[in-house]
């Protein structure tokens, strides 16, 4: 691959939420800025830009990871899912999203997208997590509003509901 010049914008092509998309980025552009300001996917939020708060967590190549700790050019050719992909259709919420709403697992909603993306990935692989496992896994996220208790309840309930449904239909978390 040729050396991408620092001062120029370069085409970045990737699959986002099931669609092929492309836009230009300087090598230094963070994936968060690329998603939000080049692709218009503002559901992914920026909270700290140093990888601690977890607000920008998205699904990168099948696993939850920090968009702010990724360069857009690193993601070239990759596959990404963001919070905008979670609802099965407009006006309907996924099982996980519904559980969050039922349990008041969000207040300002700013950290929520990152937490949802982490859980959406996690619950696919871990159908029956314990509360302790969930706590440890969600240790990678900061929420300043809820005190976490309702988030854990929502996640546990969603896990149970997804687990029950799993054999019959492959539903999205």
């Amino acid at each position: 691959m040729p050396r991408l010049n620092a001062t120029q914008r370069h085409r970045v092509r990737l699959t986002v939420n099931g669609r092929q998309v492309e836009a230009d980025a300087e090598p230094r552009m963070l994936l968060t800025d690329f998603l939000r300001h080049e692709l218009g996917l503002t559901g992914t939020h920026v909270g700290c830009e140093h990888g601690v708060c977890g607000a920008c967590t998205i699904d990168i190549d099948g696993v939850p990871a920090r968009a702010c700790l990724t360069l857009a050019v690193q993601a070239d050719g990759g596959t990404i899912r963001t919070v905008e992909s979670l609802a099965p259709e407009p006006g309907r919420l996924s099982i996980l999203q519904q559980a969050f709403r039922r349990h008041h697992a969000l207040q300002c909603g700013f950290c929520t997208a990152g937490i949802l993306m982490s859980l959406d990935c996690y619950l696919r692989d871990r159908p029956e997590p314990t509360e302790a496992e969930l706590r440890e896994f969600l240790g990678g996220h900061l929420c300043r509003c809820t005190g976490y208790t309702p988030i854990l309840k929502a996640a546990l309930e969603a896990a149970t509901m997804l687990h029950k449904k799993r054999p019959e239909e492959q539903l999205h978390a």
């Binding site: 992914t44 979670l86 609802a87 919420l93 999203q97 969050f100 709403r101 039922r102 909603g109 949802l116």
Partner: peptide, 21 residues
């Protein structure tokens, strides 16, 4: 009553409208 919040659907689907959005 602890009704479900009217704010939540937008916030859960990435449709919030914060200053930087």
């Amino acid at each position: 009553q602890s009704v479900e919040r009217v704010e939540d659907a937008a916030l859960l689907t990435g449709r919030g409208r914060y200053i930087d959005d």
